[in-house]
Amino acid sequence: MTDMIEKIKLTEKAYLAEKRLVFGEFRKNRLAISGLLLIAVLCFLAMFAPEIAPHDPLAQKLDSRLLSPSSEYPFGTDELGRCIFSRVVYGTRVSLGIGLLVVAATSIAGTVLGLLSGYMGGFLDEAIMRGVDIVMAFPNIILALVIAGLLGPGFSSVVLALALTQWPVYARLVRGQVLSLRKRAFVEAARALRPSSFYIMRKHILPNCMGPVIVLGTLEIAHVIIFAAALSFLGLGIQPPDPEWGSMLKAGIPYLRTAPQLTFFPGLMIIFTVFSFNFAGDGLRDSFGQPANQEVLAR
């Protein structure tokens, strides 16, 4: 009886040890874990914004303008008497929404284009890579400004402007992966079975280049959120009165000296969000055990 229990304990130990091996690299990294926790908090804020926010983020109350933080208004009020805490909480929805949407769209599109370009080669490769060159030839922010300016401000034009400037990063990363993978023997072995090119890309190439794409995607969320805030700050993104951290910063500038809470809290949120995604992304990269990829590092 006792040695049976002992045995069970031992197998349990072995199981746990194995599990630790997989997640060990990630768990060891305290920064990555704290990043992940912060992301969880942000997601929670975004999901339950109506329950968490004490006030309507759009409700103006002109007799309580520019109040300092108090129990009624945890982060104070802005120039129109709106609750900054509620606005910041609702802003999480916008920023996370833009980040996730843009990264989902660009990573899928960029991965598909990179796969085609790397595997098919020839004219298709040339065409896609020249497209990449064209987009990358302009500074990202300029291109995004032009696109957002042409489309007019708003949520969907921010997403589109960012998506159109960000896809080349994935296309280039994936193309590089594909070029090295297609020389490997297992891809040649698969080709010897004479399936369609599509089959090889889906079954053999794609699963083997997903790791770096996931890492890049996580880091890109942070990048995209800053970018979106910058666009809003410049007046081409989300428009007032909708709560968005970038446009809140802009609105707070005239009151920097008298009421710093207008800029302090949205700024803090941007910093927290970007840090948490960056830490999580770095941790992911380390736990995938790949050398710090230049393409990933460049961001």
């Binding site: 023997a185 040649e188 079954k203 083997n208």
Partner: peptide, 16 residues
């Protein structure tokens, strides 16, 4: 017609 490769470590898809 089939082929067997030199390096057994790389002749199978690591994710399969």
């Amino acid at each position: 017609m089939q082929i067997i490769f030199q390096n057994p470590e790389s002749c199978l898809n690591p994710r399969m």
